[in-house]
């Protein structure tokens, strides 16, 4: 049985359509127009035990809403979901004891107190045995290198340190399923890397199931083998990370360096991305790559050549843009 099983899950909100200006605001006191916004439009998904799945999509795609539905924070408008056999929005204690949700933009620790005080509170709420609590806390603080910061008030911690403490708070009860909503948002490169390393290690050792949303492709590439792309509340892709490029990118990036400082005009083969004589970088449609290389190698002296897939970030950004454009077209 899959750990996460979602069928036809929907969530829509009724949103007040406010017009601009004072007169419209006064009118709104007596008569309001509402619009139904479908944040999640009937998605199906299965996640197996021990998977680390990336949940990708542009802002407003429905990623966070899906995680909140799976955490039981909000109720769905339709469809079903089961996590470890539990219906999340029934909010059973038995379920709540077995999963955790970490949100990069919100914090659950007591702001004015050292994180260790919040940890102790978690110990009581989750009824964690004192020895288990000490062992888990020590292990997590060692791994995340924040042991010396346990006694410092949360408000005095940096964003990265705070996120590490949030992660510890979420993991103290050893959840079997972890939902991570943009855990590295706003962090510098070093802090991002530390958290990635930690999550990879923790998941490998504990074999827990993790669903991660992130806008940083480095997070995704470092941690997940499977990616689910959601846009406009629907799943557009569910498969391997590598498969995204194969499926959604119609071009390759060809870089050529010419031997005798020449800079031939190659724009008829594709879009020139960079040109610094004697180096040229082009975006070329996949079917044309072989023909282009044969022609260039025949007519010019080439000192170096590379043919690469476009970066994952670029492919996904293009995909999101086309999804948003199609949404705008549908609206109009």
């Amino acid at each position: 049985m899959s750990v996460v099983e979602i069928e036809g899950l929907k969530k829509s909100y009724r949103v007040y359509q406010k017009n601009e200006g004072l007169l419209a605001s006064v009118k709104g006191l007596f008569h309001r127009t509402y619009k139904e916004v479908e944040a999640v439009k009937g998605i199906d998904l299965k996640v197996e035990q021990g998977e680390f799945v990336a949940f990708l999509g542009p802002n407003g795609a429905g990623k966070t809403t899906t995680l909140k539905l799976l955490s039981g924070v909000i109720h769905p408008s339709g469809g079903t979901a089961r996590v470890m056999g539990y219906v999340p929005w029934k909010r059973e204690h038995a379920y709540r004891r077995r999963f955790a949700l970490v949100m990069g933009q919100k914090n659950q620790l007591w702001w004015d107190l050292p994180a260790q005080e919040s940890f102790r509170l978690h110990q009581q709420i989750y009824r964690i045995d004192a020895k288990d609590f000490d062992r888990t806390r020590d292990e997590l603080t060692e791994l995340l290198q924040v042991r010396a910061l346990l006694g410092r008030p949360v408000r005095e911690l940096s964003l990265g340190e705070r996120m590490k403490m949030e992660l510890i708070a979420a993991l103290l009860h050893s959840p079997e399923v972890l939902f991570l909503d943009e855990p590295t948002i706003g962090l510098d490169v070093v802090a991002q890397h530390n958290i990635q390393q930690f999550l990879r290690h923790y998941q490998e050792v504990r074999q827990i199931t993790i669903l991660l949303t992130s806008h940083y492709m480095k997070d995704v590439a470092a941690l997940c083998r499977r990616a689910v792309i959601i846009a406009q509340g629907q799943i557009m892709y569910d498969g391997s990370l590598a498969g995204i490029v194969d499926r959604f990118s119609g071009h390759k990036v060809v870089t050529l360096a010419f031997a005798d400082d020449e800079a031939p005009d190659l724009s008829h083969f594709g879009t020139v991305v960079e040109s610094h004589t004697p180096k040229i970088k082009l975006r070329v449609d996949r079917p044309k790559v072989a023909e282009m290389l044969a022609t260039v190698l025949r007519d010019h002296v080439v000192s170096d050549v590379s043919v690469e897939d476009p970066p994952l970030e670029e492919v996904i950004a293009d995909m999101f843009q086309s999804a948003e454009a199609s949404l705008a077209t549908n609206k109009s």
Binding site: R97, W110, D112, E117, R120, R127
Partner: peptide, 24 residues
């Protein structure tokens, strides 16, 4: 297993007191 409500209550009281003492 139900949470120990008394222990949680005590933790709330303790944390609140520590917080208030911080800003004496």
């Amino acid at each position: 297993m139900h949470p120990n409500y008394f222990a949680v209550f005590r933790e709330f009281a303790r944390n609140s007191l520590v917080r208030e003492m911080t800003f004496r």
